[in-house]
Simulated assay, not measured.
Amino acid sequence: MIKILLVDDEPLLRLGFRLVLESQPDLSVVGEAADGEAALARTAELDPDVVLMDIRMPGMDGIEATRRIVRAHSRSRVLILTTFDIDEYAFPGLKVGASGFLLKNVPPEDLLSAIRAVAAGDAVVAPSVTRRLLDTMAAQLPDPAARPDEAGPATERGLDRLTERELQVLTKVAGGLSNAEIAEELVLSEGTVKTHVGRILNKLQLRDRVQAVVLAYEVGLVRPG
């Protein structure tokens, strides 16, 4: 059973999400919160597997709440829900540790799939959406002082620990390719690509694929656009 905490300042939205989620035999809504402070308290109390997090709320917003939940309750994974396709808070939300980014009007079946994926330790931002999001938010990214094969930000962030093949895979991931597409381009099996992605996350101490993409942009392994 996947335990879910709903965080949104709109009671009707929480009710709608609850009705959809509790129609599934493997999902259970264990609690609700209307702001970031309450989300922190309820996460500590209920230990949910997945926190569905709104961004814009009174008091502590969803970004700060996500930051604190990831830091203090790393087992609980955060899935951000927003009204806008490209929200100025989406990139900061992913950067502080959210495991996904979805629109509130997402089809129910996609929301259910996303929750299950996040609970299993995966990221739920589709590669194409990740690429477009980071391109749009490029102004917020620092200008790397050096390329990844030179001393500088890349070395500091641990990319020098990756093998040549792992670096190739990371570049493809950051370029918006799925595991199947990477496998085709690099002439590998999809299982091998998945193994490489897992090793990349472990070596770089990243939570998921989304954070790997963010890091690749930050150090200049790929460039927006």
Rank of each mutant, 00 (worst) to 15 (best):
Q140G: 02
V118Q: 06
R223F: 11
E10S: 13
R77E: 05
R116C: 03
L13H: 10
A90H: 05
F91K: 03
E22P: 05
T136D: 09
E22R: 12
I115V: 15
P58I: 02
L52E: 10
P142R: 05
T66D: 07
K3N: 12
S23H: 14
S23N: 15
M137Y: 09
G225A: 06
D110G: 04
P224M: 02
S189Y: 04
E150Q: 14
L133E: 09
D35H: 14
I200H: 02
Y217C: 05
A33C: 09
V173T: 03
D85E: 15
H73V: 04
F84C: 00
A146S: 15
D122E: 15
S99A: 15
E156F: 12
R147E: 13
F17K: 04
A154N: 07
P11R: 09
I182E: 00
P108C: 03
L167S: 07
L141Y: 11
V106P: 01
R132D: 05
G100A: 11
R223Q: 14
L94F: 05
A33T: 06
G191M: 11
A146F: 02
S76Q: 08
M137I: 00
A65V: 09
L159S: 05
S113L: 15
G158W: 07
F91N: 00
T163Q: 07
N202R: 13
E184A: 13
E185S: 11
D8P: 04
D9Y: 09
K95S: 13
A120S: 14
V125W: 06
A119T: 00
A117Y: 14
H196L: 10
A145I: 11
A151N: 13
L206T: 06
A72I: 00
V193C: 00
L111W: 04
E156L: 08
V197M: 12
F84A: 00
Q168S: 06
T155Y: 14
Q205R: 14
G220D: 06
F84S: 05
K203H: 13
F84M: 08
A123P: 12
T83R: 09
D61E: 02
D35R: 03
E109C: 00
L81Q: 07
P153V: 00
L177A: 11
Q140E: 13
V169I: 14
